[in-house]
């Protein structure tokens, strides 16, 4: 096991109300329970292909997306995209149905686990190849600036968040887009989910400078490292980044130190990560951390959180039922959506 990086701490965290705290909790539990159900359904042969689960990283998705205007601001994801889709508001039913390959899926059964899309929820998509979503996100951010400055639309103040992993930060598109975002002062947040591993490639073995947030400085961009297992910390830095982007003050790079509790995908034997390392990070479960905080601050109690868990379990069970009962895509529509004329 490599030497663990010191967990960054913030001087203070953004204040949070009871309602906000419970919303964050519910969003994270939704992500966790959804992924657990995916693993179960995958092993039961209900879903296929490569399925990458987000367990452990929930504080990143929730902390960033719930600091935006979900459904109005743009979010761009990777192959590990289920929980980002849920956070922006794509109903669990439609995400689950997509994983089942059904016509009611958010990508009509054409996309699958790595290609979740929802124009309605401003989800730019899951992108299966490393780095390719970042330029697309940059385009959405450019569009906001263009609409405001060229087309005179004062309401075009949307911010875009691009999520990607530590492995991506060694890819050219990452650097090219950081450059253009800073050059044109685009309203975008680059969110690195540094979970330490690119399948079997340890981050330290892949990069000459493991502290990714430092790579922002050469572009004159704020780069911030944050504890990616602490949703309140992520939320604090995300709120600042969103405000900066919305005010036209340009992009931010946020490096979230996090960990995936499962293998790279459900097909990954996960043989390289040490037991010690896994146990160390499992002990830092972001959902338990938030629950403890909310109870400590007397914003809620264990019973109320249990009720939320129970409600979310019902949402997940309903999503599975919906997916199972949904129709397969119509075989006569095999060619539908190749061209724009197919609505």
């Amino acid at each position: 096991m490599m030497q663990e990086r010191a967990i960054p701490t913030l001087p203070s965290i953004a204040p949070i109300t009871r309602e906000e705290g419970l919303r964050l909790y519910e969003d994270m539990v939704l992500g966790r329970f959804f992924e657990d159900k995916c693993a179960e359904m995958y092993y039961r042969g209900k879903m296929f292909g490569f399925v990458h689960l987000y367990n452990g990283q929930e504080a990143v998705s929730t902390g960033v997306i719930q600091s935006m205007r979900p459904g109005e601001d743009y979010v761009c994801s990777t192959y590990r995209d289920h929980v980002h889709a849920l956070s922006v508001g794509v109903p669990a039913r439609n995400v689950m149905a997509e994983l089942f390959g059904k016509a009611t899926g958010c990508s009509k059964g054409r996309g699958g686990s790595m290609h979740l899309f929802s124009a309605e929820h401003k989800l730019l998509g899951g992108y299966a190849f490393i780095g390719e979503g970042i330029p697309v996100a940059l385009g959405a951010a450019f569009q906001s600036k263009y609409r405001r400055e060229v087309m005179g639309d004062a309401s075009a103040d949307q911010v875009t968040a691009a999520f990607f992993g530590d492995g991506t930060t060694n890819n050219g598109q990452f650097f090219e887009c950081l450059n253009m975002a800073a050059l044109w002062s685009l309203p975008i947040i680059f969110v690195v989910e540094n979970n330490k591993w690119a399948i079997g490639m340890a981050h330290e073995r892949a990069t000459s400078q493991p502290e990714i947030y430092k790579k922002a400085s050469v572009f004159g961009m704020p780069g911030i490292e944050v504890d990616g297992m602490d949703v309140l910390a992520v939320r604090t830095v995300a709120q600042e980044a969103v405000a900066r982007a919305r005010a036209g003050e340009g992009p931010t790079l946020i490096e979230c130190l996090t960990y995936r509790f499962r293998g790279h995908s459900l097909a990954d034997p996960d043989e390289l990560r040490s037991k010690t390392e896994k146990e160390l990070w499992l002990a830092r479960d972001p959902i338990k951390k938030l629950a403890n905080y909310l109870i400590d601050k007397q914003l809620t109690d264990a019973e109320e959180l249990k009720a939320i868990d129970h409600h979310i379990q019902e949402v997940i069970d309903d999503a599975v039922k919906f997916a199972q009962e949904s129709p397969e895509p119509d075989a006569s529509e095999l060619y539908r959506f190749v061209f724009a004329e197919d609505e």
């Binding site: 330029p135 940059l138 385009g139 600036k145």
Partner: peptide, 25 residues
């Protein structure tokens, strides 16, 4: 902005155009 000189980054500015097209430009 409407006749945008880009850095020499073909894959990224092409992807940027895809994102702009997806969002209505």
């Amino acid at each position: 902005l409407r006749v945008l000189d880009t850095p020499i980054a073909e894959n990224s500015f092409t992807g940027m155009a895809v994102g702009a097209a997806m969002t209505g430009l």
